[in-house]
């Protein structure tokens, strides 16, 4: 048993169209590496220099990882992870 990851539409090309995937990881850094192993190219979309990209928000269950322990946020079996692009702009 691992964690479930909800994949946003723009990344579903990399996950063969899957909107939800499962993988095993103990924290967000491991999760990104585990996803990369199964879906090459996804790591670069999600992170830059080991940090989650700005304007990409990751939630563990209902918690934004920025308010937990960022990339070191601990994951446990059964957790639901959501990757959500920010909605932003300006003139």
């Amino acid at each position: 048993m691992g964690v479930k990851v909800r994949i946003p539409t723009p990344l579903q090309k990399l996950t063969n169209g899957k909107a939800e995937v499962e993988c095993s990881a103990k924290n967000i850094t491991e999760l990104v590496d585990a996803l990369e192993k199964d879906y090459p190219g996804i790591k670069d979309r999600l992170s830059e220099g080991g940090k989650v990209r700005r304007f990409i928000n990751i939630y563990v269950n209902d918690e934004d990882i920025r308010f937990v322990n960022k990339e070191e946020t601990v994951l446990k079996d059964g957790d639901n992870i959501s990757i959500v692009p920010a909605i932003a702009g300006g003139r």
Partner: peptide, 13 residues
Amino acid sequence: KAYWPGTLLPNYP
């Protein structure tokens, strides 16, 4: 900002 960072993939098609 409508596209995934560094791509031309719309965030919310």
